[in-house]
Amino acid sequence: MVKRPGRLLPGKKVLARWRFVLQSISMEPNWAAEHLQVIRTLMERSALYRRALAPIMIFNGVAGLAAAALGWGLKIGSPRAFIFYWAGVSAVALAGSFLLVRRQALKESEPFWSPPTRRVTQALLPPLAAGLMISAVALMRVGSASDNPGNLAGMLWLPLLWVVLYGCAFHAAGFFMPRGMKLFGWAFVLGGCVLFAVGVPAWVRPLDCAHGIMGFFFGGLHLAYGVYLYFTERRRNEP
């Protein structure tokens, strides 16, 4: 039961106010600074995206690895087929992630399109949109002949660009997500850049290399991070 000053008699009200002041002054001298620190922490926590990420990461990791294996097995080698194939995989991954987030929101009786979700989406959007547009332009400019391996060899920059842009997207979203997400973004950015600089050995076939890059980054890294989160992520943010 909260006693509010307005409910007290005038004399008692004044006394209560002074008792409150004396109590406040007699507290630790830096209590105000501690109060501000608590406020800052809570405000930051309020803006954070708190859905459990482990199931989403594991789902995307498994989807990425399975898609890479399937793409390699089916010998999807023409640049056009490669772009279409991985665009389809990303659509499936996106839909799956959406359903997982929605299921969590429903389970917790919380709105799906919450302010943190909006912030994370806004952060993710520019690099992902850039990747989509560059892929669309690449799709229009490449041939569809699967018997031209040179095409895919020349297209290896595209998966690497996807990797780097994806990393940028997650690094940006990391400002509104728990710690670790920015590091995850950096792994993509640096990995993509290093592979771009070093290049791929001549003995690796372009087909294997392209699907291998996609499988390693979008499958392996997601799965590894998902497993790590599964064992470390607290279900909810504890105070």
Binding site: I39, L42, R50, S109
Partner: peptide
């Protein structure tokens, strides 16, 4: 503090 950083929050959040 939490509501100051977010336009709205659900009871469960």
């Amino acid at each position: 503090s939490m509501l100051a950083a977010s336009p709205e929050l659900s009871f469960t959040e």
